[in-house]
Structure formats: C-alpha cells, structure tokens
C-alpha cells in the first residue's frame, strides 16, 4: 500500500510518551491513567501481577486496543483520539509486536511468515523480501528451518520466527508480550538470547515479562505496574534490589521466592 507514510529517521526526542492513558473492557478499568515515557534505544521491562494491565498497555501502544482517554505520542506524533491524523498505518509501520502464543500463520512457511508483511503491506518485490527474510531468519538462528511450517517447529523456534517476522517491517519499537511464558523452560534461553542481541543493537524495546533475570541484565529501566498504573520505575538495580513501594516488594517477594 502506497499510503504508508515515509519513516522519519531524524526524530531524536522521546520514542513514546503516554499521558493519562485509560482503557476499560466493559466495567473493568484495565489502565487507569497511566503515564510513561520511553526514549529511543531504551529497553524497558514491564513487571507486574497478572491483570495489572501490562498486555493492555502494549495493545494500546500499537492501537490493537485503542485507549479511551489520554494521549500517546509516537516519535512526537499523537496517535490517539482526535489528534490521530496519521492513522493506524503510521503506528503499525513503526511498532512491531511479538506475542505470548507466537501467532505464526500456520499455513505459511517460516520464510513466508517473515515476508508476508513486507510483501503485502509494503508491496515490496518478492525476491528482495525473500533475501531479507532469509537474512532475518539467519539472525535469529533459524536459517536451517526456512521452509518449515510452524507445526514442525518447537515453541522457541516459532517465537524466534515471530521476532524475525516483526523485524521484517523495520520497526522503530518492538513490543514483547510475555514472549517466553508459553515456552518449555529449556527453550526460554534461545528466545531471550535473540532479544538480548536485539537490545545490544540499540532497538527500542518494551518487554512485558516475568523473567526477572532478563530484566536485571538487559533492561535500562524496570517499570512495575499494578491496577492499571505505574507503581514504581527506575534502573533494574534500584527497583529489583531495593524497591520503595510496598506493592513492588510484595510482588518481587512472591516472584523471587522460588
């Protein structure tokens, strides 16, 4: 589609600014006036008990679940409410997402999963897409499995293909929604390693996770959420080792116990 706006490579302000974001599902207020700012190249890990609104936060950012109130600026452009002149395309062109359940397209091979976005959305040439797709699959360690279908891949392999699929759209921000929660324990590392590498290359990442170790090692900042708001945020060393808020202490106590 030629209507996709050109990507502004020159933006140097905050990547994302969220102010007073509210989102409800029926009577349930999931996000309750959430504020958050994320810089370019920053890796932010979002922790919190289930139901605290972490996944909804990600879905608000890429407008899969548009917020009802508040504003979100992406690279300085308002993407929510009346000010959303650029439309959903502007957002989806810049924001990639990886899901807990992988959500690979089961009727497409690994390579086709990676190339379908550039092919159909950006209308790019097939040969160029294939070349770039193979490059991305190699980068996530899947060069041997290019022609395999998702049902022939392990969960860890599927998730790495899903990361390559999101990267194929050249996003400026990557959202990770509990991407290792559905994996067998021995497969978690291969996915986290890919994310680690991505972080080291300077990708802006928002990572909703229960992997405290990953947050400690990789995150520039840890955000603790509960009841739809940010309770506490800061460098991982501060939030994880020396939490100030009672709710954070309680949660980390439960998570770190085992």
């Amino acid at each position: 589609m030629s209507t996709v706006p050109e990507v502004d490579q020159t933006w140097s302000g905050p990547m994302l600014q969220l102010q007073g974001v509210e989102k409800s599902f029926g009577d349930l207020r999931v996000l309750d006036g959430l504020d958050l700012e994320i810089d370019k190249g920053e890796v932010v890990c979002v922790l919190g008990p289930s139901g605290s609104g972490k996944s909804t936060l990600l879905r608000c950012i890429n407008l899969l679940a548009p917020p009802e109130k508040g504003t979100i600026l992406l690279e300085g452009t308002q993407i929510t409410g009346e000010g959303n002149a650029e439309g959903v395309d502007f957002v989806r062109r810049r924001v990639g997402m990886v899901f807990q359940q992988f959500n690979l397209f089961p009727h497409k091979s690994a390579l086709e999963n990676v190339t379908i976005g550039p092919r159909r959305v950006l209308d790019r040439d097939e040969a160029a897409c294939d070349e770039r797709g193979e490059e991305l699959l190699t980068r996530v360690g899947m060069s041997e499995k290019i022609t395999e279908y998702p049902d022939r891949l392990s969960g860890g392999q599927q998730q790495r293909v899903a990361i390559a699929r999101a990267l194929a759209m050249d996003p400026h921000v990557m959202l990770f929604d509990e991407v290792t929660s559905a994996l067998d324990p021995e497969l978690v590392k291969e996915v986290l390693d890919v994310m680690r590498e991505l972080a080291s290359e300077g990708m802006t990442m928002i990572v909703v996770t229960h992997e405290i170790g990953f947050a400690r090692d990789v995150a520039d900042r840890v955000v603790f959420m509960d009841d739809g708001v940010v309770v506490e945020e800061g460098p991982p060393a501060d939030v994880l080792e020396n939490p100030q808020q009672e709710r954070t202490k309680q949660f980390l106590g439960l998570v770190l116990e085992h």
Partner: peptide, 27 residues
Amino acid sequence: VPGGQMEAARSLGMSHMQAMRYVIVPQ
C-alpha cells in the same frame, strides 16, 4: 481461527481485508 491470528496480521500493518484475505480465510 484463533483471535491471535488477526492480531498478528494487524500488528504487521495489514488492513482488516488484507488480514482476511491472506491470513484468516485461507485457514
């Protein structure tokens, strides 16, 4: 077809009709 398929297709920037055509209907 699981709802995650539509979400994944939309998150790649596909329109609803593109997602139907390339992802949902074939399955």
